[in-house]
Computed example of a mutant assay.
Amino acid sequence: MSEPDTGASPEVPRRRGRTRLAFKIFIGMLVAAIGLTTFSAYVLTERQADQVRRYPGVFAGMAESERPPPTDALNFLLLGSDSLADEPTTGGDAVASGVIPGAGRSDTIMLVHIDPGFTRATVVSIPRDAWVPVPGHGMAKVNAGYSWGGPSLAVRTIEGLTGVRVDHFGVIDFAGFQALTDSVGGIDVGLAAPSTFGSLVLHAGTNHLNGTQALGYVRQRTGLPKGDLDRVQRHQNALRALLVKITTRGVLTSPSAALGFLNELTRWITVDDSLTNDDLRTLCAELVQNLRTGGITFLTVPVSGLGRERDQSVVYLDSTRGARLWHDLTNGDIAAYLREYPGAALGESTR
């Protein structure tokens, strides 16, 4: 009896075998490509991280017994230098000759608290004219710490004021902020009322600002109802707008846009030398993966009033309410502070 005709040809198994082989080769090539891409991304990140300028010995000589205890959270002291020099004063392109770290006073002072899970962050601004104890110098404006003793004295001043341990330090100057803004195509900020600062004319509502305009927006002080306190909120609003642009407007999803932004960021910022390249990679990865702009709260340290000390205009801080803020921040319960002071957080618009 002849074998039944199945309709199959000897070519069919061979074709199937070749198909399976081709599929395996494709998968292998895909895995190799992914590995190569990951390696290339690592090399790029390493190169960019190497661009970051480091301040040496920021925490050297600080006795542990005199510092706030460490916690599982991560706290950064971020300063914006008020240098108006033509040459960069922060970052990898900073001019070395004639530049003394801390020679200029800090225009922007922010304590950034990142929760252990990297899902929430609190940014607390401290007005530069806040009248506080500066270790070894008595009472002075808070930004004098950076001017008189560089990053180390700035850290000691903030730790003494807040009782919050500073884990890392970073500083960027005006030129760096302008470059970062331009690198993402500008930022959108909301204003509650029209405002004019030199040639910069802003209207009530949303304003799109390029780097030069954004610099004018954060520098304006005169003509604002609360002066420096309104400018502090502008600093926060500009930072929030920059973060929104980075995280929701395609910067991080576009390789070329992300590369451009990271190149500018690593070129202009200076950090303490304990923040290694691996630390920077881990931090960036955690923040990109877990933190959204909706999880960031912007606050200003409580103020009791304005006044004068000798020939200086100063800001007096509310020590009672401030103690509550620093307690809730340290304990990871800023929501409790906001329940008691619901109007404390930055609104959608500023003056």
Results as ranks from 00 to 15, higher is better:
S2Q: 12
E3W: 03
D5Y: 03
D5T: 02
G7H: 04
E11A: 15
R15S: 07
G17Q: 10
L21W: 08
F23S: 11
K24E: 08
M29I: 12
L30C: 11
S40K: 00
S40L: 12
Y42K: 08
T45Q: 14
E46D: 14
R47A: 07
Q48N: 13
D50Q: 15
D50E: 15
V52H: 01
Y55H: 09
P56M: 04
G57V: 00
G57C: 10
V58I: 11
D72G: 14
N75Y: 01
L77K: 07
L79M: 13
D82R: 04
D82T: 03
S83G: 07
L84V: 05
D86C: 02
T90D: 05
G92I: 14
V95Q: 11
S97P: 00
P101D: 00
G102F: 10
A103P: 00
A103C: 09
T108S: 11
H113R: 10
I114W: 05
T119M: 03
T122G: 06
P127W: 06
P127E: 09
P127A: 11
G145P: 07
S147M: 14
G149Y: 12
R156Q: 15
E159Q: 13
E159N: 07
E159Y: 05
L161H: 03
T162L: 04
V164W: 05
D167T: 12
F169E: 01
G176H: 08
Q178V: 01
Q178A: 11
V184H: 06
G185I: 12
A192T: 14
P194E: 11
S195P: 00
G198P: 00
S199G: 05
L200G: 11
H203P: 00
G205Y: 11
G205D: 15
G205E: 10
T206C: 01
T206L: 07
G211I: 14
T212R: 12
T212D: 13
Q213A: 15
Q213N: 14
A214L: 03
L215E: 13
G216C: 06
G223R: 08
G227T: 08
D228P: 05
L229N: 08
R234D: 13
A241M: 06
G250H: 06
L252R: 02
S254P: 01
S254N: 14
A258C: 07
L259T: 15
L265G: 06
T266I: 02
T266G: 03
W268H: 13
I269P: 05
D272S: 04
S274K: 14
L275E: 00
L283H: 01
N290D: 11
I296D: 03
L299N: 12
P302I: 00
V303M: 02
V303N: 08
L306A: 10
R308D: 15
D311R: 02
D311G: 05
L317W: 04
D318Q: 05
G322W: 02
A323M: 11
L325G: 09
W326D: 05
H327S: 11
H327R: 13
G332F: 09
A344I: 00
L346C: 13
S349W: 13
